[in-house]
């Protein structure tokens, strides 16, 4: 009996961990839903690979800062919470900056100033303050990976779109030591060589476009849900009315 109960409890915990993990990727996607971390999303997404690179760095920083913040959450007095978090985050950002410069110099060069700026990425501070400071280490780590993964996927989506529109190819860069050479898709379509999408204006427009697409999907789902609910209410109403009528008839019949 006890064993069964504990297994059940464990499954529940697993489910919860899974929920924490997936929530950050889709339902609470930091970029498309919460609109956090807009600056790097615009600046470093001129190609799929830069987006991927930035995303990896954010995964590293966010996961580790979440773990450390969660570890020290009980000893940190409330008044100095924010400065302590800033120091923790800035430390990991510096470390990740040094490691990138050593092992992926081309990526370091192309991300440039946006590596130190991970410090002020609101996303990381927000997770430290709102999640890691209240949950245990494991959950914080899972949350960090999930949220950062969602951020990375968003960056890759934007980067891939911009790269494809501007060059007709995807992942044709030379930044990351990727296992594959050359391009994933190289349509070579001159039609798609619109340089404006690599430039600053393209960043704003592509993010705006994707936000509108996700909003449209959300609106559609909402409408569908509302319609279903309306239908359900309608049905219930009808049933209730039917019951009432039948009852009335029955009582009328009974009395007749």
């Amino acid at each position: 009996m006890a064993q069964q109960a504990s297994a059940k409890k464990k499954r529940k915990k697993d489910l919860q961990a899974l929920a924490v993990f997936t929530r950050g990727i889709i339902k609470e996607n930091s970029l498309f839903v919460l609109l956090l971390g807009m600056c790097p999303a615009l600046a470093v997404t001129s190609s799929l690979e830069t987006g991927l690179g930035m995303g990896l760095l954010v995964i590293f920083v966010l996961t580790l800062s979440n773990i450390v913040v969660s570890l020290i959450r009980k000893v940190i007095p409330d008044e100095i919470r924010i400065p302590a978090y800033i120091v923790v985050i800035a430390t990991f950002v510096t470390i990740v900056g040094l490691l990138t410069e050593a092992f992926a110099p081309a990526l370091h060069e192309s991300l440039g100033i946006f590596i130190p700026l991970i410090v002020v990425n609101c996303l990381i501070m927000e997770r430290a303050n709102n999640f890691a400071s209240k949950n245990n280490v494991l959950m914080s780590a899972i949350d960090g990976i999930g949220v950062a993964l969602g951020f990375m996927l968003a960056l890759m989506l934007i980067g891939g779109t911009r790269e494809f529109l501007a060059t007709g190819a995807i992942a044709y860069g030379i930044y990351l030591p990727l296992p594959f050479e050359g391009s994933i898709i190289n349509a070579g379509l001159t039609l798609f060589q619109m340089e404006v999408f690599i430039g600053p204006a393209g960043g704003f427009i592509v993010i705006g476009f994707w936000l509108a697409v996700f909003k449209a999907i959300e609106l559609y789902n909402k409408r569908k849900k509302k319609e279903a609910r309306d239908r359900w209410i309608e049905k219930k109403k009808k049933e209730a009315a039917e019951r009432k009528r039948r009852k009335a008839m029955e009582s009328a019949g009974g009395s007749a």
């Binding site: 690979e49 060069e109 192309s110 790269e163 501007a166 060059t167 044709y172 860069g173």
Partner: peptide
Amino acid sequence: HENTPTYVRR
């Protein structure tokens, strides 16, 4: 370079 890697690669 600081240009678009895709163009440079090409």
